[in-house]
Design a protein around this nucleic acid. Sequence first.
DNA 1: TTGTACGCGTTATCAG
DNA 2: CTGATAACGCGTACAA
Lengths: 338, 338
Amino acid sequence: MLKKIDLPENVTADDVAAEAGVSRWTVNRAFKKAASISPATRDKVMAAAQSLGYVPDLRAAALASDRSNLVALLVDDFANPHKLVMMERLTRALRSRGWDTLLVNTLDRDDAGSAMLNASQRRVDATILIGIQFDDEVLKAAHKARRFKKLIIFARTSENPNTISIAVDDQAATREIARYVMERGYKNPLYLAGPRTVSAHLLRKETFLEFWKNHTGHVPGSIGVDAYDPILASDIIRQTLAGYQGQERPDIIVCENDALALGTIDSIRHHLHLRVPEDIAVIGFDDVPQADSPNYRLTTYRQPLTAMANYLVDVLESADTSDMDRTFMGSLVVRESA
Amino acid sequence: MLKKIDLPENVTADDVAAEAGVSRWTVNRAFKKAASISPATRDKVMAAAQSLGYVPDLRAAALASDRSNLVALLVDDFANPHKLVMMERLTRALRSRGWDTLLVNTLDRDDAGSAMLNASQRRVDATILIGIQFDDEVLKAAHKARRFKKLIIFARTSENPNTISIAVDDQAATREIARYVMERGYKNPLYLAGPRTVSAHLLRKETFLEFWKNHTGHVPGSIGVDAYDPILASDIIRQTLAGYQGQERPDIIVCENDALALGTIDSIRHHLHLRVPEDIAVIGFDDVPQADSPNYRLTTYRQPLTAMANYLVDVLESADTSDMDRTFMGSLVVRESA
DNA sequence: TTGTACGCGTTATCAG
DNA sequence: CTGATAACGCGTACAA
């Protein structure tokens, strides 16, 4: 049987070495940034590599060095538009500093463990969680299996000791929001929370309720949905506010994030036929791109995602993995919805 | 210097083999679905693997087999909310059938080539393009460098012969839209197009303009933006329609996709203070989640993304790479915006 | 600055 | 059905 000669065999460092008249190891050095090699030799090697179309094989490099420059990004919450922003910022920071990203879709509620296993089989250098279904049990199991060099929770605080959490200071942020709500004179807030999978998720809601109680003496009402999905928010808002019959209707709805806030605004306008913010104001969290659209003009809290993503890469590149939790301060973006 | 003994060494097939009292090759067979191995042996091996926490190393497997079960997903257009849907559907189809996804963010306009190189260094089995900046030049260069086993353009038609295109039939879809617009009695459409990077992108716009001309004798106006970004759409709609001064104002704006359509609706309402669809109707393409929100109720065209994603995996799994282009039929989703 | 064993953990292939 | 040999392409020592 004939061999297809028009298909290029995989060109390896050996081929380049032969072409350039050096040893294979010199070829390798030419491709390393900080290697002791004379410029002349490097040029010669690079020219040969270029002509042959050689690029180093990162699989082999990873296998030999036990460092893959690969991170897994586990996502389970594609209904939240903020995820797209986070993915963009993260992949940008990672790639511009030499890291590749394995995107793992946590398919359903019970898939987190299998998704992690998936990542670990690729021997990623770190696993980043930007989802919501990663509860403490999963984290504990992952750590026990010792499958990860680094387990990073991004944009979520976590009290898990085996985990590195990079997030905004939820309590400070929520207090800033609560203070703003109070100063603007709102009297009867309703809190709309998201899924309650991880204990730390309670931070925003609890902080808000507590702040309000401390300052006014009574605890605001609160409701919740099972996913950060505008549709769900829309539904629950309609159901909840239909029950109020005009009396004691909330004058502002404080949402755990923008995904919920956008659905809330839609519902207030189109189901209840009320105005935002005149009848009911709305405040969010995240500052998704839509928040700035003329339709929503959502008052919300912006996380410093770029700084957070860059810090994440710092974490990846640091040898000492302990004590790297860090919180960031964001800023309240005041628009017109509250 | 002491060795940290609490850190688990990488447990390999050898370790499992020793534990189970078989050879290393038997361990490997136990992990392959279609391998000739006795159930008893497999059970024994799996038990040992479990107890040691062994999982096969996919790097090594890829290196040895020259099949990575990894695909690169190149994305450059994170402003378009539809990308999030596509990523979800693709990663879902891929992962549920055993494929992993390398997410590559094409950082800027000139980065496509470097992004592809990035992917090729991981020796992915295929590269999937769901962006817009991949023009014919880039594709030609990629093919010339013979860097890819398979180069798949997803949700975009492409006439490039070295590429596998999986997309809806743009012409049929656009004709369906045009026919609907006509039947609903609109007289003066304006077409809002996206970036013009690849020749095939012209399909939707040209098809619409031609259809309209053939049926009415005159060519509708058309405008365009450089990215599928609602903000840009919003801006250009405001500028363009401000110039119309009431006379000859379009009665419907046909948008190349939903990202543009949503921005268009926002602008019509909030900049021009007109109603949708009574003053100006809007029609989109993609059926993003927001299209169904009570705020937009966008009439649009839905692509059968799940079927397309599954077909993509079929392509990955088929040996014969030639002649796999395929177009799908979608369906018009009529809501209230047109 | 450059060259040389050896190992990384698996798969393909053949022997028994 | 099971065991064994030879790759796969590169990195890490260390020696020259």
